[in-house]
Amino acid sequence: MTTTWKGFINASVSAISFGLIPLFTVPVLASGMPATSVLVYRYAAGCAVMLVLLMAGRTRMSLRFGDSLRILLLSLLYAVSSVVLIESYNHLASGIATTLLFSYPVWTLLLSVVFLHERLSAMTTLAIVVAVAGVSCLSGAFDGGRLQSLTGALLATASGLCYAVYMVAFPRMRIRRMPSLKVTFYIFFFTMMLMMLYALFVEGRIRPVGSMPNLVNLVLLGLLPTALSNVTLIFSLKQISSTTAAILGAFEPMTAMGVGILVFGEPFTLPVVLGFALILVSVLILVLCKKGVK
């Protein structure tokens, strides 16, 4: 298997597992836990899972001071992206916010072209346009949805921009040569600390877990959409371009919508079918475009 195909698979696994967030988050939110506390537990559980694996592999955990600053910068981008997305839900319908968040493939492409002088491929641009159109269909933008707040739109778009900067910056940093599990652990550890400060500032405290079902959901939230998703994302960023990985991120809302339909009984409408089809087409365009790459 070529490096490119491994990158495709890792990016797809990352996006699909990330799309499982609603499966474990919605029941915890329904129990009354605020989103800020959920984020703290999400990153804490992810750190715990990865720390066990790192200890089992006897990985050296030391960090250089410069590497710590680089990881802190990435963690800040990750934390800000999470926080502003949550805040956007206070102003926008979640479907519209999801569409605006998925502006990050566009931002990734623009950042790569402007700052890294990456060649703008017509096929890559087409894949982005088709993927964004597919996510728009899934979000409800073509099914009666409308923009309700400029503030919410700016927050959701800022979330996508922060995530794009994260995806473009990581492959160019020295820490990309660190073991993927180790660097992901430290990114999440610093993100958890930042989220704890934010939760204490906004809520005044971090809510207790409260019940065994909440604990199970939070552990799974830390394991699948957090640890697995981000480790495979970092693997993919070492194997394919940031732009390609971002386009494959279209599997995130596709998976989330599938969970909503199959688990939470959300409607399966014609725009949803069209959204699924467009996302698959965008991935097919990428595969055909990269077919000859070794």
Rank of each mutant, 00 (worst) to 15 (best):
R176V: 12
L74A: 11
L147H: 13
I128H: 11
T191D: 13
G140E: 01
T255Y: 03
R146F: 12
A133L: 14
L228I: 12
P267I: 01
L154Y: 00
L92N: 02
M192I: 08
L69S: 09
A250T: 01
S236N: 08
V130H: 09
W107Y: 15
I240C: 02
E118H: 07
T244E: 08
L280Y: 15
R146I: 10
L274A: 09
F18Y: 11
S229N: 11
M173Y: 15
V281D: 04
A97I: 05
M193A: 13
T4H: 01
G292Q: 07
F18V: 02
T232L: 10
G19F: 03
W107L: 06
V283S: 07
R58G: 04
L110F: 09
L109F: 14
M167K: 06
G134N: 07
E118C: 00
S103W: 11
F18M: 07
I175N: 04
M173I: 10
L274E: 12
C162D: 10
F264C: 10
Y166E: 14
V26S: 11
G57V: 14
A79Q: 04
K182L: 14
I206N: 09
L85N: 02
A169Y: 15
A44E: 08
K290C: 04
V259K: 06
R177A: 10
D143Q: 14
M257I: 06
G19S: 05
G152R: 13
I21L: 12
L155V: 09
Y78E: 11
R174M: 02
P171V: 12
F189K: 09
L237P: 03
V272K: 11
L120I: 08
Y166I: 10
G19D: 09
A245F: 08
I21F: 11
F102H: 09
T124Y: 12
L116C: 04
N217W: 00
A56F: 15
V130Q: 05
L120E: 00
G260S: 14
M192G: 01
L262A: 15
K291A: 06
V84T: 13
I240E: 01
P34L: 00
S31I: 04
L69T: 10
L286F: 07
S103V: 03
T59P: 05
I16A: 08
C47I: 01
T4V: 15
S112Y: 06
R119F: 02
I206T: 11
Y163S: 02
K238S: 09
M173G: 06
Y104L: 01
L155F: 06
L154N: 00
Y78M: 15
G152S: 07
A156E: 02
R146Y: 13
M33S: 07
G210Q: 04
T2V: 05
F102K: 06
M123T: 05
L92C: 04
L92F: 01
V38L: 10
P271S: 06
V113Y: 00
F189A: 11
Y186G: 02
L120C: 12
L110R: 09
L233Q: 08
F235W: 00
A79D: 03
V168C: 04
W107S: 06
I128E: 08
M254P: 01
Y186K: 04
L155C: 08
L278S: 06
F8N: 03
P208N: 10
L223M: 11
H117F: 14
T191H: 14
K291Q: 10
A11G: 05
